[in-house]
Design a protein around this nucleic acid. Structure first.
Lengths: 462, 462
DNA sequence: AAATTTGTAATTCAACATTTC
DNA sequence: TGAAATGTTGAATTACAAATT
C-alpha cells in the first residue's frame, strides 16, 4: 500500500491508478505518451521522481524507470540523474528539416540550400552526358560503389582538401545524409554512443534516435568541441564514435582551427573512437581562411569515415556524395551501402564526374563563393557581430537572440510574417537549453533582393 | 556454488568461468559471439539450456537469457521454447547479394538483373529529358517526395496493377531496397517482429538483422505463406508486420493466387499487422496469368505499405521506386525518407516519368517479357520441372537439388566452373535447413547464348 | 495426457552514479 | 564537504508459455 495519501502533495502528473493494466510499464508509458502528445504535460514539465510516482501507484520504482525509459527512447522525455525527468522541448513536433510543406509564399532561411542560381551550369553537363556514347552502361547494376573513373574523379576532387586514398577506399553514395545513415548502420549498433557538439545538425539527431544510437553532447567553445571535455566523457561512459563537421559546423558555422583539430585527434586516438567527419563545406571554404583545415581523416586514416558531399558545393538535386573509409571498414561499409541503396545512380554520378573532370566544378564553387560573400556581407549590415566565431563564408549564420524566447512560438510568429528560420532548440543534442540562437540560411533565397527583404523582416521582429 | 561438477556431462559450450567480467551477460555474449564467429560453434549447434549453463557458471539463469538474447538479435542464434537454442545457419558469413567483386569471367546466375538489353531505350529518354527546357528545376532540394507530375505518373503506372491512391499517399524513393530500409525505419523499431516466408530475399534478412528487427519464418506451400500458420504465430508472439512479395516471391518465384491472398488478408486484418508488400515484379507479370493478382494494398489500404520499383520493369540503374502508404503512415514515412535520402534525384525520377508518360514503358515491359519467356523456355529445356509452382515469366527459377549438398562449397565449386548461383541456404530466414535448392537468375546474362552455356555447365555439374 | 524441459517476460531487489544543495 | 535526491543498471525472483517425451 502507498505510504502516504499524497492528497496534499503536488505532483505534476497523477495517472489514474485504475487505468493501469498489465504489463504495468507499457500501460504507464502509453498513458504518459498520450498526456504529452495531447498537451496535458507541456514541454519542460518536470515529471514526478521515479520513487515518488511508484509510491503513489504502489508499484516498484524500477517499473516507473522502464515506463520513463520507453518514452525517452521515443524522444518524449529526457532524464538527468540527480535532477529529474522532463518533457522534451521537441516532444510533440518533429525537428526534421526538409523543404516539404513550406508555405509557398515564405522567404526560406530555414533549410540550407546551396545557391541554386548556378544550376544552369549543371544543366549543361546533363546534356553533355546524355549525348555521349555509352549511356547504356550507366543504367545497370554494375559497380555499386561507383565506376572506377568516377571514383578517380572523386579522389581528384578531394585531393586539394587533404584527402589521399586508394580507389577501393572510396564509395559513391546518395548525398551526405545517406552517407550518415550508411555509416551509422555499418559501424554502430543500437545502444552505441557517439559524441557530438551540444548543437548538432538536427537531422543527424533524429537519424541517430531512430537507430537507437545515443548522442552524448560535448561542451565546446568558439573553436569547437573541447578536447578535455571529450576526454572526460570517454572516461565516464563507453563511447564508440564522434561526429564532427570541422570546416563549418552546422548549425553554429564554427570552423575548427588546426591546433584544436590536432588536440581532438589525440584524444580520439587515445580512446579509439570512430570519427564521422562530415566535411560537406570543405570544397567551398577552401582557401578562404589564413590556413586550410587539416581533415581528421589525414591525421587518423584508420579510424575515420570522411564524407564529402557535392550537394552544397556543386548541385543539391543530384544527390552524390563520396565516402572515404579505411580497409578495415570496407567490408561493412559496402554491405551497408548495398542494404540501404543497392547503388547510387551512375547517371547522376557521371554528371558530377563530368563537371569535375571538365574543370567546371571549380567555376561553380567560385561562383557560389562569390554569392556567399555577398550574402554574408549583407547579413553583416543587418546584424553586425564583430566577434562572430563562425566561418566568414558560411552558407548560414548563427545569430544570438538578445532575450530568451519561446522557441516554437518564435518560429511560428516569424513564419506568419513570411520568414522561416530555425531556433537553436531544434539543434540541441541533449538537454541544456542555454542561450537562444537562430540559424539563418543565406543560401536558399533566389535573389539578393529576397534575402534583403527577409533580413529586414527578421531584424524588425527582434 | 554449482550443484554438480559437470565434469561428466557433455555441454556443447563450456565458457571459462574465470573469463566472466561484470556485467556478466555482456561478457558472456561477447564470448559466445567470438566462439561462433571463430568457428568453434558451427551452425546448427545446440547450445546448453539456459538453466544448465547458469548452473555451470553459478549465475542466475535469466542472466544467460540476456546473453543469448543479445546474440539472437544480432542474428547469431535462434531459440525455440521447449527445444533449445541453436547457432544460426548464416551466423558467420554475410549473405548479401551484390554485383561487387564478381569474377569478371563468370556467367552470373546470382544477382537478378533485369535484361539490361533494353537499356538503349532508356538512353533515348535520358537525351529527351536533358534537352527539355527547365532541367534546372530538377536540380534543387524541392519536393523531397517527388514532383507532383512525377507522382501522377507513378499513380498512372500503378493503376493497372490495382493500386488507387491519392498523390499525397505516394512518394518516390531510390529503389526497392531503399524503400524497405525507409519502411523498416519509419514503422518498426529494434525488437519488432515481422513475419516472412521461410525462404526470403536475403538482403531483406540482413537489413532486418542490422536494424535488430526479428524475422519470424512462416511455413508455406506452393501457393505461398499459409494463413493458418501466420495466425498461429500471431497468437504465440506479438507480431507487428508481415513481408510479402505476392506477384513473384524472391527466391521461390511463387505467385500467390487470389484466394490465398484473401485468406492472408483476413488473418492480417484480424491481428492488425503492417503489410510490407514488395510488388517489384507486378508490372512485368501483369496479364500473363489467368487472373491478375489483387494487391494486398487494395484489400487493406490502411495497413499496407506498397512498394513498386521500376528497377526490374524499366531500368535498374536509375534507382526509382514508388511507395504507397496510408494517411496515418505519411508523417513517419516522409520523415524516414528525409533521414535516409533527403530526396531521390528528381532527374532520375523525371527520366522514368518521361518513359511512363510517353508510353515507352509499356514497350520496354513487353520486350522484357519476351526475353523472359524465351529464357524460361530455354531453362525448361535443360531442367524440366512440370510441377514447378513458380510464376512462368519469373526472372529467376528455384531449382530443387536432387541430393543434399554443402551450400557454400556447392556455390564455390560451380563458380570455379564459371557459373555463379546462390544456394537456398542464403535465403533461410530462420532455422529449418530443409530441402536444397538453388536460385538461378535468367535475366542477368547478356545473350541467349551465354544463358545456354551457363545452363549447360549447371546441368553437367549436377 | 501429464510431467518435464526449455525459453520468455514482467517485476522487484540491490548496488551504484551523478547532481543538487 | 557531505548528505539527500534522483536516475541507471545488472541480476534475481516469479509466473508463464510452448515444445517434448
Amino acid at each position: 500500500m502507498p505510504i502516504n495519501s499524497f492528497v496534499d502533495y503536488h505532483m505534476s502528473w497523477r495517472p489514474e491508478r485504475r487505468e493501469l493494466t498489465r504489463p504495468i510499464y507499457l500501460s504507464l508509458a502509453r498513458m504518459l505518451e498520450r498526456d504529452i502528445t495531447e498537451g496535458f504535460l507541456p514541454p519542460g514539465t518536470k515529471l514526478p521522481p521515479q520513487r515518488e510516482l511508484a509510491d503513489f501507484l504502489d508499484i516498484n520504482f524500477t517499473t516507473v524507470t522502464r515506463a520513463y525509459k520507453t518514452c525517452e527512447l521515443k524522444g518524449l522525455l529526457h532524464a538527468v540523474t540527480g535532477s529529474g525527468t522532463f518533457v522534451s522541448a521537441n516532444a510533440v513536433r518533429s525537428v526534421t528539416i526538409s523543404r516539404d510543406r513550406v508555405p509557398v509564399e515564405c522567404i526560406d532561411f530555414g533549410l540550407v540550400a546551396s545557391f541554386e542560381q548556378s544550376n544552369f551550369m549543371i544543366a549543361e553537363a546533363v546534356k553533355k552526358v546524355a549525348e555521349k556514347a555509352g549511356v547504356e552502361r550507366l543504367l545497370n547494376y554494375d559497380d555499386p560503389a561507383g565506376i572506377p573513373h568516377q571514383k578517380e574523379a572523386a579522389l581528384r576532387w578531394m585531393r586539394p582538401l587533404g584527402i589521399e586514398a586508394a580507389t577501393d577506399q572510396v564509395a559513391i553514395v546518395s548525398g551526405a545524409q545517406n552517407a550518415l545513415t550508411i555509416t551509422l548502420l555499418a559501424l554502430f549498433e543500437p545502444g552505441s554512443r557517439i559524441a557530438v557538439d551540444e548543437y548538432t545538425y538536427s537531422n543527424f539527431i533524429e537519424l541517430a534516435r531512430s537507430l537507437r544510437i545515443k548522442l552524448i553532447p560535448i561542451p565546446g567553445d568558439d573553436s569547437g568541441m573541447l578536447p578535455e571535455e571529450l576526454d572526460n566523457s570517454c572516461r565516464n561512459a563507453e563511447l564508440q564514435g564522434v561526429f564532427l563537421m570541422p570546416s563549418c559546423c552546422n548549425p553554429t558555422a564554427i570552423f575548427i582551427p588546426n591546433p584544436r583539430r590536432k588536440a581532438l585527434a589525440e584524444v580520439i586516438e587515445k580512446h579509439g573512437l570512430i570519427v564521422i567527419e562530415d566535411d560537406i563545406h570543405a570544397a567551398l571554404l577552401h582557401g578562404t581562411m589564413p590556413e586550410n583545415g587539416i581533415p581528421l581523416r589525414q591525421m587518423l586514416p584508420e579510424q575515420t569515415v570522411y564524407i564529402c558531399s557535392t550537394s552544397k558545393s556543386i548541385c543539391s538535386g543530384l544527390r552524390v556524395a563520396y565516402i572515404v573509409f579505411s580497409d578495415a571498414m570496407r567490408e561493412r561499409m559496402l554491405r551497408a551501402i548495398y542494404h540501404v541503396n543497392v547503388k547510387t545512380s551512375s547517371l547522376d554520378a557521371e554528371i558530377i564526374t563530368e563537371i569535375i573532370t571538365s574543370g567546371r566544378g571549380t567555376d561553380i564553387v567560385a561562383y557560389k563563393k562569390s554569392l556567399a560573400k555577398s550574402a554574408n556581407d549583407l547579413f553583416a549590415d543587418y546584424f553586425p557581430q564583430p566577434d562572430d566565431p563562425g566561418h566568414p563564408l558560411s552558407f548560414f549564420r548563427w545569430l544570438r537572440l538578445p532575450n530568451p524566447v519561446h522557441a516554437s512560438r518564435f518560429e511560428s510568429d516569424l513564419l506568419a510574417k513570411g520568414v522561416r528560420v530555425f531556433h537553436s532548440e531544434r539543434f540541441l543534442a541533449g538537454t541544456a537549453s542555454r542561450d537562444h540562437h537562430v540559424r539563418v540560411a543565406l543560401s536558399s533565397t533566389e535573389s539578393r533582393e529576397e534575402l534583403r527583404k527577409g533580413l529586414e523582416i527578421l531584424r524588425s521582429h527582434l
